[in-house]
Amino acid sequence: MSSSPAHALHPKEHEAPKVAAEPPPAAAAVREPATVAIIARWYRLNKGRLRAALIGAVSLVAFLVVWHLLTKYRVVFFVRFTNVPSPLDVYNSSTKAMRDPKFLMHVLLSCRRIIFGFALASLIAVPLGLIMGRFKLIHEVVFPVSEVLRPIPAIAWVPMAIMLWPTNEQSIVFITFLGSFFPILVNTLHGMALVDPVLVRAARCLGARETSIFREVYFPASLPHIFTGLTVGMGVAWVSLIAAEMISGQYGIGYFTWEAYSLVQYADIALGMIAIGVLGLTSSLLIRSAGRLAMPWGRT
C-alpha cells in the first residue's frame, strides 16, 4: 500500500460507518444523499480490497469444505485420507488444547526458543554484517568462513549441537540461532554493498566523519535489506526449530506434533501444524510492523 492513497482514505474509512450508524431523524432527508454519496465513494475507493477480502474468504471456506469432504468419504486416490482428521476433529481437539496447560507450555517453550535464538542471531549478524560491509579486512577474514558454513542446513548441525552444548535446550536454541544467522548476515551485507556512494559523498561534504557516516548513512540505507534478512531469518528459524524439536526435543510444538503421531492422536497432528503456521505468521507480521516503525520513510 503506497502512503499517499492511504492518507486520502483514512478519514473516509472512519466517516462512513459513523454517519451510517446515526439514527436518521428529522434531518434525514437532507443528510441521506450525502451519506449515500460517502458510502458510494468509500465503496469505489476500496473496491479492490473488498474484492480481495471476499475472494480470500470464499477460498478459505472452499479449502475447509474440500478438506471436510476428502476426510468424510475417506478418499484414497494416490494419497490416502483414511486416517486424516477432519476439520471438525481438529476444531474439537483445539478447544480442548486451549484449556490444556501442557499444550500452552509446548507453545510457550517453542516461542522462548525462537526469541532467544533469533534475538541472538540478530544481535550478532546485523552488527557483523555492518562492520564487514565497512571494513575490508574483516570482510576478507570472515566471509570465506561464512561462505563455507552457510550452505550447511541448520538441521545437519543437530548431532554436532548435541555434542557442543551441555543441555538439550541449549542445543535447540543453537540450531534456531544458526538457521536465522546466515539469512540476516547475507542480507545485511547486501544492504551495505548497495548503499548509494553519492549519499556517502553528500554526507562527507556536509562535514560528516566516519562514525557519523556509519550512523546517518550506511545504517539507515541498509535497513530495508536488514529487515528482509530478519523476515527470511525468522522463517528459517521456525523451520530449524521444528526440525530440531522433532529430532531431539522433549517439549515444544514440533515435539507435540511428532508425539501426536506416535500416540495415534491424529487430530493433534493437524492441530500442531496449524499452531506452527499461526506462530510463523504472527512472528513475520511482528517483524514487518517493526520494520514499518523503524522506517517511516518507506513506501511499504
Partner: peptide
C-alpha cells in the same frame, strides 16, 4: 556541493 541526482537522504 549539489549533485545532479539530488542525493537527499531518503530516511
Amino acid at each position: 556541493m549539489v549533485f545532479q541526482q539530488y542525493s537527499l537522504f531518503p530516511w
